[in-house]
Nucleic acid binder design. Structure first.
Lengths: 203, 203
DNA sequence: TGTCATTCTGTCACTGACTGCCATAGATTA
DNA sequence: TAATCTATGGCAGTCAGTGACAGAATGACA
């Protein structure tokens, strides 16, 4: 990585960390982009060159997660049952979380607290998830050789998988302060989802 | 209903209809609140007294649907399996749709087209659905006598139900121009969901 | 080391959503 | 008719987000 990109990444993370702290201190709505930019000594205009919008700060994890999910899905054998592949993608996100840097886990936990305190942001998060869902549907429909616009089985199975992930991450109580707890909880939720679905769905 | 309220409702619908038409003609983003207000001869300030925001125009159906779902859910026997009750609430929305006024179905179809053309709005719609989901979870957890914050089964089953509804409504192709088609499609999706879940879940 | 092209950054001006405040017009009731 | 309540409009202001331009920092290369 060039010196230039390294610096950009540093700025990016500085913005993110400052913003998360400010959000947690004074609330999401009461924190302005101007204030965030000021705290990192950049202009508001520059802020928008690093993040497409204020809300993208709270969605930072989604981009990363989506990438992992799509990569994993593509690496699964094409003849594997869709539901099984999807569960593997969920576990891949989980695995990535577990061996991320301490800085990243700290960010993740802050983000979790932020979402807990601001139901409005959960809405944004779910909306972002819908975009991921579309991409997963496209991927799986492609694998099955069906039309993503009409293959309702495909939509439904992906929606169920995303629901599983969301519920695993969202369930707020008891409060977590460790990534492994979240991982365990997601693991449990995956098992629960398994137990709710017809056994023959997962190969 | 008093004369006063009748007039308010009329204004409300005038705003809604005008806005939907403008959105479909020129796109959601290119249509400003000022323009909508102008077309109905009210001030922009007044617009915001009828709708909390521009996006609430595209979410108008959700408020109605949520009400129906909650009402139906509360009217179901307390000892009915959660999943069964939830499927009844879905069908209740469907039934309401089928015997609504021609004006309402026209609005609904316009809304459908709008969502098809603007993926961004689907995000908003899903976010609104998340709020409904929380309320359904609270209701069902109450019925089961569990804590909504920890009862993951409850979250998951509600999330599955909402996914079913969403997929039923969303699946865009082939294009629909009749409410009965949408109803039939949702019906099919409900059946599909049934077939995916373990048989003993639905009493 | 000094030039040169590339890329980053800040400033400015602007649009558009949304809100609080206050004054007024219009309807409601006594 | 007078008093009251409510719907509305106008105004001023905040904040997110964008396009355009100019200057500064950076990397490549002679």
């Amino acid at each position: 990585m060039g010196l230039r990109e390294a610096k950009k990444e540093k700025t990016r993370l500085a913005i993110l960390d400052t913003a998360l702290d400010l959000f947690l201190e004074q609330g999401y709505d009461s924190t302005t982009v101007e204030q965030i930019a000021g705290s990192v000594d950049i202009s508001p205009r520059t802020f928008f060159r690093y993040f497409a919008g204020k809300d993208h700060l709270a969605l930072w994890f989604h981009d990363h997660g989506e990438e992992i999910m799509l990569d994993t899905l593509r690496s699964r054998p094409a003849d594997e049952p869709a539901f099984t592949s999807l569960m593997h993608t969920l576990r891949a996100v989980l695995a990535d979380m577990e061996d991320s840097t301490p800085e990243d886990t700290s960010r993740f936990l802050k983000l979790r607290r932020l979402l807990d305190e601001h139901p409005h942001l959960v809405g944004l998060s779910v909306a972002r998830g819908a975009a991921t869902e579309r991409r997963l549907v496209a991927e799986i429909a492609g694998r099955r050789g069906t039309d993503p616009d009409t293959d309702r089985f495909c939509h439904l199975i992906v929606a169920f998988a995303m629901s599983t992930m969301r519920v695993g991450f969202e369930c707020p109580k008891p409060a977590v302060e460790d990534v492994r707890e979240i991982a365990a909880r997601l693991e449990e939720t995956i098992d629960l989802a398994h137990s709710l679905l017809r056994p023959d769905l997962h190969g």
